[in-house]
Amino acid sequence: MDIFESDDSSTPLTSDEKNGLKLKWIMLRSELNEAEARNIAKAQIWLYSNKNKDVCSDIFLRELHKRMFDDVWKWAGTYRTSERNIGVVPYQIPLKLMQLFDDVKFWIENKTYPNNEIAVRLHHRLVQIHPFPNGNGRVSRLMADLLMEKLEGRKLYWGNKNLVNVSEVRKAYITALRKANEGDYSDLLEFTFAE
């Protein structure tokens, strides 16, 4: 089985992006997932040792993605340059991110939505923009968690499961994201709420 084979809800990599894999010993998708998980854990240690961060910035987003994936991918922290089946065209990525971060700051300042909805909308729009070749869902969920921690001192729930592997929980998450594409955030908000 091809370690780069994607399911219906994953974005396929280009040949150049596949060649960006640093760990040439990886032969199985499970090995790739494990290497990325170790790298993400290392990034979380960095996050919690750097408390004063402006989460709503292009610079922070790129640094976070780089720290999450730089042990695994040469292109970590670099915006994609190829078109995808999801996301804006590559040249629009910086502008769309600037608009998103300005919107989030406005929503917070004007209390446009409850804090958890602001975080969910940040997550959803980041996924829609799809700035990186891979890891967009993971970096977007972490960005939403960081914003929630900053606003309320807690993280979102995310179904309390691993959303990287194909599962019923991941399918429900993808369905909620697609519903949010139509402007209905109810399922995504419910998905991130813990009782």
Rank of each mutant, 00 (worst) to 15 (best):
I3M: 12
I3E: 10
S6T: 14
S6V: 14
D7V: 00
D7A: 05
D7K: 01
D8E: 10
S9Q: 05
S9N: 05
T11Q: 15
L13Y: 02
S15L: 12
E17F: 03
K18F: 09
G20I: 12
G20H: 13
L21K: 06
K24S: 11
W25N: 08
I26A: 04
L28D: 04
N33R: 13
A35V: 04
N39H: 12
I40Q: 03
A41Y: 01
A41F: 04
A43G: 11
L47K: 12
L47Y: 13
Y48G: 13
S49I: 11
N52D: 15
K53L: 14
V55L: 11
S57C: 09
L61M: 04
H65C: 02
R67P: 08
R67S: 08
M68W: 05
M68G: 02
V72T: 13
V72C: 12
W73P: 11
K74Q: 14
W75L: 05
Y79R: 05
R80Y: 00
R80A: 01
I86P: 03
G87N: 05
G87D: 07
V88G: 14
V89D: 12
P90C: 11
Y91C: 10
Q92A: 15
I93T: 03
I93D: 06
P94R: 03
L95N: 10
L97S: 03
F101P: 12
D102M: 08
F106S: 05
W107P: 01
K111D: 09
T112Q: 06
T112G: 01
T112V: 13
Y113Q: 15
E117P: 14
I118C: 09
A119D: 09
L122S: 00
H124N: 08
L126W: 11
L126K: 09
V127Y: 08
V127E: 14
Q128M: 15
H130R: 12
H130D: 00
P131W: 03
N136Q: 00
V139R: 03
V139N: 02
S140K: 04
R141W: 07
M143E: 04
M143T: 05
A144C: 02
D145M: 01
D145I: 00
L146C: 10
M148Q: 05
E149K: 02
L151E: 10
L151S: 06
E152M: 12
G153W: 13
Y157C: 11
Y157A: 13
K161D: 15
K161G: 11
N162F: 12
L163I: 08
V164W: 09
S167N: 10
S167R: 11
Y173N: 08
I174V: 14
T175V: 12
A176K: 00
K179F: 10
Y185E: 07
D187Y: 06
L189M: 15
E190T: 06
T192E: 09
F193D: 06
